[in-house]
Each structure stands twice: as C-alpha cells, then as structure tokens.
Design a protein around this nucleic acid. Structure first.
Length: 530
DNA sequence: CGTATCACGGATAGCCGTGATACGGTGCGCTATT
C-alpha cells in the first residue's frame, strides 16, 4: 500500500484471502482520481464493484462492459469525470478487451487516473499469447497512461513474474511474492494403466473423502459423466464448464459456496475468484497443462488451514490432450497477408484499419499482430502499427520461429507436470522448487514421504543425501546448444533448467558435471557468440 | 496425442477387429433471434 500510494509500480503474488484487494482499494480511496482495475471476468468485476459500493457508498465503483446498456455506460463515465471528489467514481472495472477499444482508451487518457490495477495478472502470460490477445496490449496502455501500476495474482512462478513485469512495462517494481507453501494440503498421485480403471478409481475414491470438494476433469463431457457417476454413489454433485448456461453456472457457484453440493465436477473454467475456506479436497481426474495450473487449482483446497487432500489421478496418455492444446501452428499465410497490407500503408495503420482491410476477426488479427510485434517484425506506437525493416519473407519466418519457440516452452511446461506426477521424491519440495522456493527437508505430508517413512520402519533410516548442486538455484547458466537459462530446481540427482528458447529441461547432475554441459553465466548474456 | 464413434467386413458369437474421422479448454464483444 505504501509503495502504491507513493506512486511506485508493484507486483504482488499472494494467495487468495491474503487481502490483495485491500492493497489497491485503500490507496485508491485516498489518492485523487479514479483507479482503473483490469480484471478478466465480468462476473468477478461485478462482485468486486458491489463489495466496494456496499462498504464505501453507492456510486464509487462502476463496471464497463458489453453487457451493459448505453445509459449505464454513460452514467459510469459521467461519475468518473465528475469534478466533485466527494461523489466521484473511485473505481472503474474493465476487461482488457474494453481497453483495446479506441473510444475507451481516448476517454481514459482524458481521465484523472490515480492508479492502474491489473488483477489476475498471470493472465497476461497464460492468455495473452493466443486466447485473449488484448492482454498483451496492456503494456501499451500502461505506457500511454503513465500512471503507477499494481499487478496482482495468486500464482506466478519466477518466469511468469518476469513476463508480467516485461509485458506490462513495469518500472522498477516492488515485487512481493508471499509464501507458496500450503502445508495442510496432503499431496498424492495415483497411477492408472487403463482409462476404465482410472474412471472407476475416481468414482470410488471421491465419496470416501470428506467434502465438500472439487473434481477437475479434462473435457466438458467428462464433467457430466463424473457428476452423474458420483450422484449414483449418493453424493450431491454438479457439473461445471464454459458452455453451460450462465444461470446454471451461477447456480453451481451459489450451491458450492453455500455447501448445498458435495462435489463440483468441472473443467478449468471453475474457480477463478472463488474464495471458499472449507474445500476439503481437490481431485484431478486428468493432469493439467502445467504445474502453474495444477498449483492454482489445488490451492482452492484447505484455505481455512485445516487438512485437505490434493489427489492427482494420472495416466501418461492424458498428457496427449495437453500436448495437443500446447501445439499451435502459426498461420503463415495470414501473417504474410497482414504484412503485405501493412507495408502498403506508408504511415502505418491502426488495428481497426487493418481489420477493415483484411476482413478478419479482431481476435484473429490480435493474435497475428502480437506474434509479429513480439518477433520484432512489426512495431507499435500509440496504437499505430508499422512494418519493420525486415523483408516480408524474413518477417514471416521470424514470426513462425517465434511461435515455435513458444510452443517449445509450452510443451516443456507439460513435461514439468509429467515430472510432478512421476517423481519419487517429496512432492511439496518439487512444487515449491518450481515456484522458486526451497523447503529444505521432505514435507512428511505427501504420498512419497509416507512411503519413505513406511520403508524406514522396516529398514534402517537412510542417510538423507542431497547430492551435488553445482549451480545455485535461480542462477543463470548457459548450455552449448540451448543457450542461456536459469536453474530452477534439483530433484533426485537431476537439475531442471528453464532455457529462454527451449523451455524446461531436466538433466542428470552427474552428466552435467562429467560432460561439462552447463557453464555459469552472468546476467544478461542473451547475445552470446554461440 | 488419445479416444469415442461409426461403418464395414468377416465371422457364424449373439460380435469382434480394423480403419476412417471427428473432437477436445479457458472469455470477451458483437449480432441475430426470441
């Protein structure tokens, strides 16, 4: 709050329930002007605005989005522009898609903005590149507004933090990353060979767990199959996914929060913004696409500090779906067409002009533009795009290569999830290592620790041998072929390095030493002669 | 990448294997229809 009130940029990584909202709400109420809050879900925006208006008085918080009537939108802008500080709006909630609109950014530029808040800031990294490209445009808005920025999220591993800082153009931000450890969550993985066995094991084990809880599955169809199967076994079960009707989704939320349901079988659509203290289990019937997603999802369990179960039902085949989603072949023709149109316009073009010329959807255009911009083929200055000096073919190649590099990284994130499922070491050490924290000793509250303890009862206690750790955690290293990277964790005689262009790679420490595979590197050696 | 589904051919049970094919997650904004 002090940093924000003092005008400094900040990034806060803290669990839900730690009072992240207060960090922006208190300074925003004391600073002159309006706080602009960017939030990914309209339903979340409404909840937050309602809460503020209940506490601070009507008309202080307003929501702007496409579901509102023009009258309500006019009213919100009028409240934000009201020169009378006593009745003026203090908070405007918008999705990034709103900020991409020209009329909205013009009105914002004319507004006395106290503070720009990016809530759920990990979306910049997880959604910006393809699903919701407008997230990657926020950095431009940050620069244009020139106001202090506060980025908030509950889950962000170190590389995600760096990406948020870079992408949002944060200047010398205060970074607060609060403890990721959730010692009351019991971690376990159950391996299955056949799909039928896994299905049966999930249906049989969930009713044995104390509820209420969440069951995450891979597809919409499975939400309904599992919900039906659990109801047959006497549980009150609901299914939840994006294509259920809005009213039904709201009803499932309400039932879950009110303990009117024992288990919700859901896709990844369920959970953001939900703060329910007494979730007793989070079971996964399929492995998620990354450790980031997995930790976020199990983090919804046991917020009250009491014991809760995180069980992953794992089949290696389930990784196939995640690999499929992580593979995104870029549209080379679309890139070439966009470049041709852009080069034909000498003074550059706005996104709206490009869309009119090309006749593509704004989402499609946004994805292509992001790719060209990130690969350096196109530059952007206050909403105007210009082709760079690269030749058209080189530019397309560069963008395609950039997309392939990102796919590498996404695929390596899937591999990290696989490693979690297959590790024989302490699962908590593994998870915390991924988030850049060291536990120091096995946790004693995961299946692998319990297995080790059971063996120790019958055999003499094995000496805890950590093995050599030639490079400090979070230190920069370089590999002859894979270039620069950062040491992320050690596990069971291996070291995991996050390479800038290849993503996560796990190497045998012995081989690294024997073959001299990694060299310590100073910070900022991206342009090595290799 | 894995799977569910269906048509089909070949078997001669009350159906099995094979190959082709479609499908799979997350939300915004916007338009057309009720």
């Amino acid at each position: 709050m002090e940093a924000v009130a003092g005008g400094r940029d900040a990034l806060c990584v803290m669990p839900t329930g730690y009072g992240k909202s207060g960090i922006y709400q208190v300074p925003a109420l004391t600073l002159p002007g309006v706080a602009v809050v960017v939030s990914p879900l309209i339903a979340l925006q409404r909840d937050q605005a309602d809460a503020i208006n209940e506490a601070a008085g009507r008309g202080r918080a307003w929501v702007l989005n496409s579901t509102q009537a023009q009258g309500a939108i006019d009213e919100a802008w009028a409240a934000a522009q009201n020169p009378d500080e006593a009745v003026r709006a203090k908070f405007l909630f918008l999705a990034p898609e709103q900020l991409a609109r020209e009329d909205v950014s013009e009105r914002l530029a004319a507004l006395d903005v106290s503070l720009l808040v990016i809530d759920e800031a990990h979306c910049v990294s997880s959604w910006g590149h393809d699903f919701r490209p407008d997230y990657l445009q926020l950095g431009t808005l940050v620069q244009a507004l020139g106001r202090p920025v506060l980025a908030l999220t509950a889950t962000a591993a170190p590389p995600v933090r760096s990406e948020i800082i870079t992408s949002l153009n944060l200047r010398d931000p205060l970074v607060l990353a609060h403890g990721f450890d959730r010692p009351n969550l019991h971690l376990a993985v159950q391996m299955h060979v056949s799909a039928d066995d896994k299905h049966r094991a999930v249906l049989e084990s969930v009713p044995e767990l104390p509820g209420p809880g969440l069951l995450y599955v891979a597809t919409r169809r499975e939400t309904e199959e599992y919900a039906a199967g659990l109801e047959e076994r006497g549980l009150r079960a609901e299914s939840y996914h994006s294509s259920r009707r809005a009213r039904d989704r709201g009803e499932v939320h309400r039932k879950f929060l009110d303990d009117d349901v024992d288990v919700v079988a859901a896709t990844s659509a369920f959970g953001m913004g939900i703060d329910k203290p007494n979730v007793r289990f989070v079971v996964h019937a399929a492995i998620p696409d990354s450790i980031d997603s997995y930790y976020q999802e199990i983090g919804r369990g046991g917020r009250d500090g009491k014991p809760a179960h995180a069980v992953l039902h794992y089949r290696p085949e389930d990784l196939g779906l995640r690999r499929f989603f992580a593979s995104k072949t870029p549209d080379a023709d679309g890139l070439a067409q966009l470049l041709a149109v852009l080069r034909a316009r000498d003074g550059g073009a706005t996104a709206a002009e490009l869309r009119a010329d090309l006749g593509v959807s704004s989402r499609k255009l946004g994805g292509l533009l992001n790719l060209l911009r990130e690969s350096g083929a196109v530059t952007e200055d206050s909403g105007v795009y210009r082709a760079g000096t690269m030749g058209p073919e080189d530019a397309v190649d560069a963008a395609v290569a950039f997309a392939q590099r990102r796919e590498h990284i996404d695929q390596s994130r899937v591999d990290m999830a696989r490693q979690y499922a297959e590790t024989t070491g302490c699962r908590r050490e593994f998870l915390l290592g991924y988030f850049g924290e060291q536990l120091g000793a096995p946790c004693g509250n995961c299946d692998n620790c319990e297995k080790a303890a059971a063996q120790a009862d019958t055999a003499p206690e094995p000496v805890e041998e950590q093995g050599p750790r030639p490079f400090p955690l979070q230190s920069p290293v370089a590999h002859r072929e894979w270039g620069p990277g950062m040491v992320m964790s050690y596990d069971d005689g291996t070291v995991t390095v996050l390479f800038e262009s290849e993503g996560y790679k796990t190497l045998s420490v012995d081989l690294v030493l024997e073959k001299d595979l990694l060299k310590p590197a100073g910070a900022g050696t991206e342009n090595s002669a290799e």
